[in-house]
Design a protein around this nucleic acid. Structure first.
Length: 640
DNA sequence: GGGGGACACCTTTTT
DNA sequence: GGTGTCCCCC
């Protein structure tokens, strides 16, 4: 990240004129560099920092950009780099009247699933699908701004089943509304709907006169509605690559980027073609993968740095053998390079890298795992946060239910009764008239057989900085939590609260803190400053987009996994792009590993037929059998 | 009404 | 290996 230098195409993009600009940039062509360059260019022309808004799709990408901006400016800039969600949430929080949202409580996917589970229980007769399917369906419907039928078509749901999905969706929507909850999708929906008002769109567009959007291909219809509303009032600078569109499950359509010119007829479209990241051999394999697609990506990346070593496909016996191979390659390289962080292990799923993780642990190789469970998704943290959520919003039913059930002998039915008695009036409406939470709890404490009123009263006495509240909540729940988790790594879990407290010190209000931890999740094992530490990175492909490493291991590239068994044609293509993103993270060395006996064995013959690497030409990929020398063919009988 | 044991079923991906 | 769910007993 030294002094930035740009090639011709990048310079053109950085200085491009026009109200709407789209930069089509292949993998490794310096997208982030260009965005940061453009940003600095605008600043040098006198554009005020706070009128620049930089939108990314993951919090990781946002913080990456922020870091680069800060290091170049040698201070904290006031350029706003954030995800669509956290930017929109801030707008809404600061303007409750405009958005008609009076301090709503933000709920996460866990809460969402809890509600859909409740629906399933109450509607058993309808034989509803899994809560996660109901949730995905609802979310997709909102994100494509379509009807239940539209969502059903994308999800291949039978017409006869739409009704259940739709009624679950309605239940969920009504529930949120009655309790003043908003979820991730509501944040964007609320903004998109309100921006239909021209004056508001003009005001927001004026406030954020330059909006830059990274990974434009991941924009879904709901987000496009926001962009479209602002487009006449702001300057748009978008960067994207159709071949890296991997968020179809969230409603993004990779072809929408091709329609940019139709959407904005005066748009200025530019291209970045030169790849600075990888060796030609790595790009040859990546290019080959895209060429096999029936879709015309028209993408042949050319390596600016020329030739290097041949990527390698490695067949291991099982997951542990695969992990062993990777760990030893890393150890070998460390002996020469003296740097762990040159290595990145790319996994498709959060749990897929478990074998690698334990192997690294065993060999004492430092690593961080990115994209796993977030700190605030951990049960014990949610338990403590439920107490603080009640403090913030006494009508937060989900928090009450979780909190009350911490007590032994206090189950769902009793919890529900208590919640109703403290938060609702006789008509089931919020009991605004019942007085302060403190006096309500005090009244309840008279016949509290369990002791649930004590922590609440204690928290209510606490001076209200978020850090003090976290302390107070934790210390009053410590004994009960240590009992609950006594056989479940309590000693490890309890250490998390120090970190939660530290995070809380950065916030002035509890509501702001709660928002922040849901919108910018902190990853459990990401705690010790990922960016500065020298560690091997184990990361999901989705989180790795935009990142690179000198040596990459793409694991579990086996039949039945790439593409996944039972994928539709569209899904197969999305998975091809997922693999493409993974391959193009590598700068110098690329290892593609798979095992014949893992958890994901090919489930059918089809898996072998559709497998992406079936026909890979020998000339572009080296091969390591990992078994006896005479055995050159894997058990899959892959033509190689 | 709550707890606990036995069972099945998984496992995308992010905000 | 973990989690959700069902069912039976206190």
């Amino acid at each position: 990240m030294g002094k930035p230098s740009f090639n011709k195409e990048q310079q053109l993009a950085i200085r491009a004129e026009g109200k709407q600009i789209l930069v089509l940039a292949g993998a490794g062509t310096g997208k982030t560099t260009t965005i940061v360059g453009r940003c600095n260019y605008l600043l040098s022309k006198g554009v005020p920092e706070q009128s620049i808004l930089l939108i990314t799709f993951t919090r990781r990408a946002a913080s990456e950009i922020r870091t680069r901006l800060n290091s170049q400016a040698r201070r904290r800039t006031r350029v706003n780099a954030s995800t669509f969600h956290s930017w929109a949430m801030n707008l809404i929080r600061r303007n409750p009247k405009v958005f008609q949202m009076d301090s709503p409580t933000l709920i996460d996917r866990d809460d969402m699933l809890t509600l859909f589970r409740r629906f399933r229980r109450d509607h058993k007769a309808k034989n509803p699908p899994k809560a996660s399917k109901l949730a995905d369906f609802h979310s997709l419907m909102i994100n494509i701004r379509g009807t239940a039928e539209d969502a059903a078509e994308l999800k291949r749901i039978l017409t006869s089943e739409i009704e259940v999905y739709e009624s679950a969706s309605n239940f969920y929507r009504n529930y949120k509304k009655s309790r003043n909850y908003i979820d991730y999708d509501d944040i964007l929906e609320c903004l998109a709907d309100r921006l239909k008002q021209k004056e508001l769109a003009a005001a927001v567009g004026e406030r954020f006169a330059h909006i830059m959007i990274d990974e434009m291909q991941d924009t879904n219809p709901l987000q496009y509605d926001i962009v479209d509303a602002l487009a006449p009032h702001t300057n748009l600078f978008c960067v994207g690559d159709d071949a890296q569109s991997i968020y179809g499950f969230r409603g993004a359509d990779f072809e929408s980027i091709h329609a940019f010119k139709d959407r904005y007829p005066d748009a200025n479209i530019l291209k970045l073609r030169e790849n600075f990241r990888s060796t030609q051999e790595i790009l040859d394999v990546s290019n080959w993968l895209l060429r096999q697609s029936p879709l015309e990506y028209d993408k042949e990346l050319l390596a600016a740095k020329g030739k290097g070593t041949m990527p390698m496909l490695c067949d291991a016996e099982d997951r542990w053998d695969e992990a062993d191979f990777i760990a030893h390659k890393i150890l070998e390289s460390y002996a020469v390079e003296d740097r762990w962080a040159n290595n990145m292990v790319l996994t498709r799923t959060g749990f897929g890298a478990r074998a690698v993780e334990s192997k690294l642990l065993e060999l004492k190789i430092p690593y961080i795992l990115i994209g796993g469970q977030s700190l605030f998704g951990a049960r014990h943290v949610k338990d403590v946060m439920s107490l603080l959520r009640i403090y913030t919003n006494r009508y937060d039913e989900l928090a009450w239910m979780r909190y009350l059930q911490l007590w032994r002998g206090l189950g769902e039915v009793t919890a529900d009764r208590i919640f109703k008695s403290v938060a609702l009036d006789e008509n089931g409406a919020f009991s605004k008239g019942k007085g302060e939470l403190r006096s309500v709890i005090q009244d309840a404490s008279a016949n509290d057989d369990f002791g649930w009123t004590r922590p609440l009263l204690k928290v209510l006495e606490t001076a209200n900085t978020p850090a003090d509240l976290v302390d107070s909540a934790y210390s009053s729940l410590e004994s009960i939590l240590s009992t609950i988790f006594q056989n479940d790594h309590w000693d490890v879990r309890k250490r998390d609260f120090e970190y939660v407290r530290e995070l809380a010190t950065k916030h002035r209000t509890m509501a702001g803190f709660v928002d922040e931890y849901l919108l910018n999740p902190v990853f459990e094992r990401d705690k010790e400053r990922a960016d500065t530490a020298d560690k091997v990175r184990i990361i999901t492909v989705h989180s790795a987009k935009g990142l690179e490493a000198s040596r990459c291991f793409v694991i579990d590239v086996a039949p039945g996994e790439y593409p996944r068994t039972g994928s539709t044609d569209e899904e197969v293509e999305e998975e091809r792009r997922v693999l493409y993103v993974a391959l193009t993270r590598a700068a110098n060395e690329l290892y593609i590993t798979r095992s014949t006996r893992g958890w994901s064995q090919p489930k059918s013959k089809d898996d072998n037929d559709t497998y992406f690497f079936n026909e890979i030409p020998k000339e572009i990929l080296a091969y390591d059998g990992r078994t006896d020398d005479d055995q050159t063919e894997s058990e899959f009988k892959i033509k190689f």
